[in-house]
């Protein structure tokens, strides 16, 4: 059996105002290894958490360009080299005819990039996470808001971090083990 070691702390908030304030305090204290959980999207929370804009658009752009290139190259190769057939008297290399599939593959690969890139950035699927050991955490899908701070964060200090979260209005704080 694995030895249980402290993973971090889970703070519970009863409303969005204290939750929002808690995020701002953790952000301003310079934490990097922490996350916020809420039952619904809280407008402006990304700013309160100090999150940078996602890199996802770049992933989508690159995937889309790869998809379009693959689509165009594939059709060019098939129509001119692998299986050249004269269709309604047009040249083998008729780029006009290749445009719809080039476009579609660009969109398809872009969509793949968006979905799987999002999975990757969010580390999904995650089958186990220490916050699941908390019984109270189940209410995150209903009416409670949580901030989890990892013990590995350089700014982490069991006593000070707890006080910081309490000063923001956390109603319950528990220690989590991995």
């Amino acid at each position: 059996m694995r030895e249980a070691k402290p993973w971090g702390m889970l703070a519970e908030f009863e409303n969005t105002q204290t939750f929002y304030k808690g995020c701002e305090k953790i952000r301003d204290a310079g934490f990097s290894r922490w996350d916020a959980y809420s039952p619904f999207p809280v407008h402006g929370l990304d700013k309160a958490m100090g999150l940078k804009r996602s890199n996802l658009p770049w992933i989508v752009l690159i995937c889309g360009l790869i998809g379009a290139s693959v689509g165009f190259a594939m059709q060019t190769w098939v129509a001119t080299t692998a299986y050249p057939v004269i269709i309604s008297g047009k040249p083998f290399f008729s780029w006009q005819a290749f445009v719809p599939i080039t476009f579609e593959l660009g969109v398809l690969f872009g969509a793949f990039g968006a979905v799987f890139g999002m999975f990757g950035i969010n580390k999904l699927p995650t089958y186990y996470h220490p916050v699941f050991t908390s019984d109270r955490f189940a209410r995150v899908t209903d009416d409670r808001f949580f901030i989890a701070v990892e013990a590995q964060d350089p700014s982490y200090d069991e006593r000070k971090t707890k006080k910081l979260l309490e000063s923001a209005g956390a109603t319950h704080i528990e220690q989590l083990e991995d």
């Binding site: 309604s88 008297g89 006009q96 005819a97 445009v99 719809p100």
Partner: peptide
Amino acid sequence: AFSQYFLIWYAN
């Protein structure tokens, strides 16, 4: 613009 061009090009 491409839709207009494409159909006319194809039908010829």
